[in-house]
Design a protein around this nucleic acid. Structure first.
Lengths: 138, 138
DNA sequence: AGTATTTTTGTAATGATTTCAAAAACGAAA
DNA sequence: TTTCGTTTTTGAAATCATTACAAAAATACT
């Protein structure tokens, strides 16, 4: 948790118990969880935790650039504590979201829209069926 | 409308009045509209049109690969009748979604996830503030 | 025409997210 | 450490996009 606390402070975010817990969860779980997945886990260690606080916190972290927000399945927003440039792949069968390495990390930046005055975010995602699910259904 | 009708048939989609109207709208409006924007326009020419039909139709068109579905603002799904490889840029100020050309169209395909058995869709999007909005607020 | 199939429609339900105001926690100053 | 102002958290209620569903309408087939 010490890491999460300092990480938050490096973004100028006050490290409340709830914020540290959310940030810590994202730094230690590379599963791209939803609000509800985060809430359901953390409410065990913080019984008074409110879903709204999780929403508020994720919003705050996102605004400060401390986490990524993935709009990929059209239903839930998924969150990622790993902010280095990479893409995502969502399996429509199992719903898992995988990280995808890029052969040319500068590509996204190089193609920044010409009419953009500020760019705050860029995401590349793939959808399909993962190898694990393809094997199962054979 | 003749173009939309034939376009649908080329995907093996039965060209009902409603489907042709939706497809025609997307082929003639490069604005990445939402379900509601499409519905509100088309209900003028098809007074009995139902929102559910627009949902059904867009779903069908998407499943057949006739249109793109953009999950970019976390609230509404936006649709695009222009399916050639390109990225998108959403201005968080005005909400407009712009098309973005890519300097290397093969990039996305080249970085297809290694653990993907099937890839059905790939999207690259940017978020930020467009030049038009940046000028206004100065 | 008559029947089976597909498509459309409208209403009701679902469920993620936001709103909002009160309560609690925190920080600074004395 | 008390007090006061500010920030944060909380929970209930509201919002709103999307889905479920079953009846009605349109279409295809014989």
């Amino acid at each position: 948790m010490i890491v999460a606390r300092e990480y938050l402070q490096s973004f100028g975010i006050r490290p409340s118990v709830q914020r540290v817990a959310v940030m810590h969860y994202l730094l230690t779980h590379r599963t791209h969880p939803t609000v509800d997945e985060i809430y359901s886990e953390l409410v065990n260690e913080i019984p008074t935790l409110s879903r709204t606080t999780v929403y508020n916190t994720l919003h705050l972290l996102y605004e400060h650039g401390a986490i990524l927000a993935l709009c990929i399945d059209g239903v839930n927003t998924h969150f990622d504590g790993y902010t280095s440039p990479h893409a995502h792949f969502r399996c429509s069968q199992c719903g898992k979201i995988y990280d995808v390495d890029l052969d040319d990390v500068a590509f996204v930046e190089r193609n920044t829209p010409k009419n953009a005055s500020i760019v705050t975010d860029a995401q590349l995602y793939y959808k399909g069926v993962c190898a694990a699910c393809a094997n199962k259904s054979n």
